[in-house]
């Protein structure tokens, strides 16, 4: 009972402290918020791009376009050639009528309808057996030499590049998070140092009348925890506001590409994780600082 009560008193003191120095604690909370919003913003961008990557053909898919003027015989010849390719696991014809129908359902459909004739070529989607780049290159080179073929698009190429870029972005996010996490320790440590100095008398008197070190430490640690949680929440708000402003533009760009892609915040558990981690870091920073300064006061 008394143990709970002691913690309640410490929490109350921490809140009081938060209210007592509105400007400096507000500024500190703001700094924490900004420090959190950088990696969180980058992370948000990454998960959105990853989501976009998920919509892309994950398989190692190759698209083969026939020349615009190709007729039914050309189509048959290519079909036969494809059947004879041992490197292929399968293929599928997307004829120009079918392609037009699909396209009409998207936002560019109206433009297509305005055109006098179907501008789309016949195409095949190919599923190669191997994903080995050199083998694929060989296969692409062979098919490129066929007279009926206009172009070959290896869809996974830029998806791979994007994936590599995302992996790099992820590393960057972690690096940023670690660096700013260390900065958080310093920021909170400094704030606590100022508090310990301004509350020197209170600490000294409390110790003289029987306060344990943990009694003295607790409000500072809770203060750090609260400030960290508040700061992180502010960081989440910053990112949300940024998304709110960027969102419409991204939607517009996505609409131009006939995609329904829209920016969204990380999931709630991830956001809670960010808040909890920041609070924990700030708690540790506060404990480290108060321990160091208590030792100074003891001398």
């Amino acid at each position: 009972m008394s143990a709970i009560r002691l913690r309640a008193i410490a929490l109350r003191n921490a809140f009081k402290q938060l209210g007592r120095m509105p400007l400096s604690s507000l500024l500190n909370t703001l700094v924490i918020g900004i420090a959190v919003s950088f990696p969180l913003g980058l992370y948000t961008l990454l998960i959105n791009l990853e989501g976009l990557l998920g919509q892309l053909p994950q398989q190692n898919q190759i698209t083969l376009f026939l020349k615009p003027g190709a007729d039914a015989t050309d189509l048959k010849q290519v079909q036969k050639l494809l059947q004879n390719q041992p490197e292929l696991a399968g293929f599928k014809l997307i004829d120009r009528k079918q392609a037009l129908e699909t396209m009409k359902q998207t936002s560019v459909g109206s433009i297509l309808e305005a055109l006098p004739e179907n501008p789309l070529p016949d195409a095949f989607t190919l599923m190669p057996k191997s994903i080995e780049p050199t083998e694929l290159q060989h296969l692409v080179a062979v098919m490129q030499s066929w007279p009926q073929v206009e172009s070959i698009q290896h869809d996974s190429d830029w998806a791979k590049r994007l994936a590599a870029l995302l992996a790099f972005g992820e590393q960057l996010t972690w690096l940023l998070a670690v660096a700013l996490g260390a900065a958080l320790l310093v920021i909170v440590g400094n704030a606590i140092r100022m508090q310990v100095l301004t509350r020197r008398d209170e600490i000294e008197v409390s110790k003289l009348i029987g306060a344990t070190n943990s009694f003295i430490r607790r409000p500072f640690a809770y203060f750090g925890l609260l400030q960290g949680a508040l700061g992180a929440a502010l960081g989440v708000v910053c990112v949300t506001v940024a998304l709110h402003f960027i969102g419409p533009n991204v939607n517009q760009v996505a609409a131009l590409y006939a995609s329904s892609f829209a920016l969204h915040l990380p999931a709630i558990p991830a956001l809670l994780g960010v808040v909890a981690t920041t609070a924990l870091l700030c708690w540790i920073g506060a404990l480290l600082a108060v321990n160091r300064h208590l030792r100074e006061l003891e001398q």
Binding site: D201, E202, V205, L208, I209, G210, A211, T212, N213, F215
Partner: peptide, 17 residues
């Protein structure tokens, strides 16, 4: 601290907050 809880200390400079 537990020793001090059994002692009342009175200071010349009061040490009030």
């Amino acid at each position: 601290p537990y020793l001090r809880r059994n002692i009342g200390l009175i200071f010349q400079d009061h040490k009030l907050l």
